[in-house]
């Protein structure tokens, strides 16, 4: 352990901790934009600068490791002015269209601009202008809103192992894009969307469906593969408007294309909404629950009487819950009287 003081408070943290980690661990908030706790440090945005006694200039707390006896100040007039300046510069080249931006309410940049009272007019000048032309159906990339924090580049490489995007060009022309500035063609896991601190990366299906007003969050388990990722469904009215995952879930907040973008089947117009009985004509006809279930029970009973219970079988589903599967086999075994029950484990 290493002992140091942060804002005159004595703290003790593990060796190799960064100043930022030491501060966070002790409940001291340092503003950040490019930092993400699940990714390697970048030190790009300079918002997390702190002053360290004995060092001539402020240092980025996310990339500076602690040392014994260090004296750190996370907030001084000089540092706060510097942060304000950084924000002014970022916002000078940012389309301040929070009114219609999908990220409003969950935007780190918006929150910091609010906290520092920065409007971005002080250095107004040339703006980056990029045409939106991405044909993929999953991820909206609005590169004019990109603050070049590099989180998306890191998550794509470090977590997903895909390296679909990287920084290109230099200085004012810097931007993040796929190789040869092609359209995005990747696994579309949306990890980049989940770590983007602004509205530069959003889900295409989310557009104008709901941001935070009237949106509820419900934690549940993904209905696709057996990994069992914890999902958070964002619900407005009776519609899922987006899906995310929390970093403290067993899947650490990471999802795949199906988990993150594959929820739209829920509201599909193809959903079955009424019990159906096939008539003599061969056509299905809508009916009531009572009629459908009595008809079904009558058939099962008739076959059981004529041919025995083993002439009836049940196929259950690996898509249904434990409770439903338990009850299904109990119904087939105890209600019908046969062990002819299986599911698709092998298929």
């Amino acid at each position: 352990m290493v002992s140091l003081t942060i804002n005159n408070k004595k703290v003790s943290v593990p060796e190799d901790s960064t100043i930022l980690e030491a501060a966070n661990r002790n409940g001291i908030k340092v503003p950040t934009l490019c930092h993400h706790p699940q990714l390697t440090p970048f030190g790009g945005c300079r918002l997390c600068v702190v002053s360290v006694k004995g060092m001539p200039k402020p240092v980025a707390s996310c990339t500076t490791t602690v040392s014994e006896g260090m004296e750190v100040a996370t907030s001084t007039p000089e540092i706060e002015n510097f942060r304000k300046l950084v924000l002014e510069l970022i916002l000078s080249d940012h389309p301040n269209d929070c009114m219609t931006c999908e990220a409003t309410g969950s935007c780190a940049l918006q929150e910091l601009a609010y906290a520092y009272g920065v409007k971005g007019q002080e250095y107004a000048g040339e703006r980056r202008v990029y045409a939106k032309r991405d044909g993929n159906p999953f991820i909206e990339r609005d590169m004019e809103k990109c603050i070049l924090c590099g989180r998306c580049v890191k998550v794509c490489d470090e977590v997903q192992g895909v390296e679909a995007i990287d920084f290109t060009y230099r200085g004012f022309r810097s931007k993040i894009c796929p190789s040869y500035e092609d359209d995005l063609d990747c696994e579309f896991c949306g990890q980049c969307v989940s770590v983007c601190p602004t509205g530069a990366l959003t889900g295409k299906q989310w557009a104008r469906k709901g941001r935070y007003e009237g949106v509820r969050e419900v934690d549940t388990t993904c209905p696709y593969c057996g990994t069992g990722c914890t999902l958070t469904a964002h619900v407005k009215g009776n519609e899922i408007v987006r899906v995310s995952s929390k970093p403290w879930s067993p899947n650490e907040g990471w999802l795949c294309v199906k988990g993150r973008f594959g929820y739209k089947f829920v509201n599909s117009p193809d959903r079955l909404t009424k019990p159906l009985i096939r008539r003599a004509s061969g056509e299905f006809e809508e009916t009531s629950w009572t009629a459908a279930l009595e008809y079904t029970a009558a058939w099962f009973k008739k076959i059981r009487e004529q041919h025995g219970a083993d002439a009836i079988g049940g196929l259950s589903s690996a898509r249904c819950t434990n409770e439903e599967n338990y009850l299904f086999q109990k119904f087939i075994r105890a209600g019908v009287g046969t062990n002819n029950v299986d599911h698709c484990a092998r298929l």
């Binding site: 696709y224 049940g314 249904c320 434990n322 086999q329 075994r333 484990a345």
Partner: peptide, 20 residues
């Protein structure tokens, strides 16, 4: 690795012809 969200559970719950 189980291929479906609840293959494990459907098997545990005995939607299988040889076990309770």
């Amino acid at each position: 690795l189980r291929g479906q969200n609840n293959v494990q559970g459907a098997s545990d719950a005995a939607c299988l012809p040889n076990v309770f």
